[in-house]
Design a protein around this nucleic acid. Structure first.
Lengths: 229, 229
DNA sequence: CAGTGGTCTAGACCACATT
DNA sequence: ATGTGGTCTAGACCACTGG
């Protein structure tokens, strides 16, 4: 059986976990490891590159590879579409549009989206339910310059999220997580009391330096966002 | 100039972003692309593998590579050590131990950590300040079976987080984000009012199937956790 | 069964950072 | 100057899985 990069990676990880290679240790170079494992250097390279990507080790040319003293712990969250998030839990999804207006971009948003004063944006407010219980409140602003079709889009049946995904194939984004106290309006929609703590995510999405949309998703009371790493 | 995997990746990304390769499209196979770009198949493979890792495309043997209809949007968060988080913002870090006790594991925690009834755990409560202002409240339970040194550890000068990182080199974890309403006790420590919405993360850390620690980090009012992707 | 991606190899050249 | 990782190549075999 030939030695795979997964074998090498697993063995290195094991040595790190067992303390055989303590944090701060300088690891052997790729050529030596390749010889030791009886494989090609490329195989060792792949294993160590993945360890580096995961923040376990730190690689520098000439300096070599070290076990990180404080591993960069990183968590990966998948950002699902609400409908799928709800249906994957076996719940029934329901959607309703609350408001849809064309308005001058508010000042606080202008900075975020890097828009010109007086420019118009589409604001959409809607709700998502799981089994008839309020699940998520969505408030979104869309830049019609990039996505002119939004001016004709009808969000009464489907949320703007799925619609946008179809229109804008790929983009980069900045996302924030936070806790907020429910306003009276939010509380009415979410079926809780004003002042209750709610989990919120805010996301700005860009297509090559120009902002497409800013969205504020507020979850029902007690919601948790969970992941493993 | 030779064609690098980054060139290939960037070009493919561009074609996807511009809609030339719309979501759902079946992409050419590696051999064809290699010929088209004038590079080796391994180069194309690396480019497409990274696109797959990032959730942009979907690869299946024999079926080929497709542009995802709904790209798996995923965010990566680095989980910093509080001290570094604060000092990297140019603020002065201060720490204080609030409480440290050896107690029977509470029922709600026993399930989480998969411990035996009546087993003892170390509970540590402490605070972290930035420039003298409350920044984060930490409440932590540690399993002394895995880390017996915790029984002698003195957390009066340094927090258990940094201490644990040095003791336990590598581990896997489950992390949750949520919003909570401040209890009176929390509010007193954080300098806010009871009932205020606070951002909290809870993390369970394991070393090979056995739980090491459960930690509850509550941030000051208005805290945001932000990342780009 | 046949086509696709998954991986390994042996060798090579290069970029970079430490010395 | 020199050693380390970063990457490309050309070829090969294999594993999976769709038709």
């Amino acid at each position: 059986m030939t030695v795979t990069f997964k074998d090498v990676k697993a063995d290195l990880l094991d040595k790190i976990a067992q303390g055989i290679m303590a944090p701060g240790t300088l690891m052997p170079n790729e050529m030596d490891l390749a010889e030791r494992y009886g494989c090609a250097r490329a195989t060792v390279n792949r294993a160590m590159r993945e360890l580096a990507d995961e923040g376990i080790v730190e690689r520098k040319r000439k300096a070599g590879t070290r076990v990180r003293k404080a591993p960069i712990r990183q968590a990966r969250f998948s950002i699902p579409i609400v409908r799928e998030e709800i249906e994957s839990k076996g719940s029934e999804y329901r959607y309703a549009l609350i408001d849809r207006t064309l308005q001058d971009v508010p000042d606080w948003l202008r900075g975020r989206l890097a828009l010109k004063p007086g420019q118009e944006v589409v604001r959409v407010v809607c709700m998502h339910w799981a089994d008839g219980i309020p699940y998520q409140h969505e408030e979104r602003w869309i830049n019609p310059e990039i996505v002119p079709a939004v001016l004709e889009a009808d969000f009464s049946a489907n949320g703007p999220n799925e619609w946008l995904l179809a229109e804008v194939p790929f983009s980069n984004a900045e996302i924030s997580f936070m806790a907020v106290e429910a306003t009276q309006d939010l509380a009415d929609h979410m079926g809780c009391f004003a002042g209750n703590a709610l989990f919120r995510t805010e996301r700005t999405t860009w297509l090559k330096e120009t902002a497409i949309t800013f969205v504020r998703l507020t979850y029902r009371r007690g919601h948790r966002m969970t992941t493993r790493y």
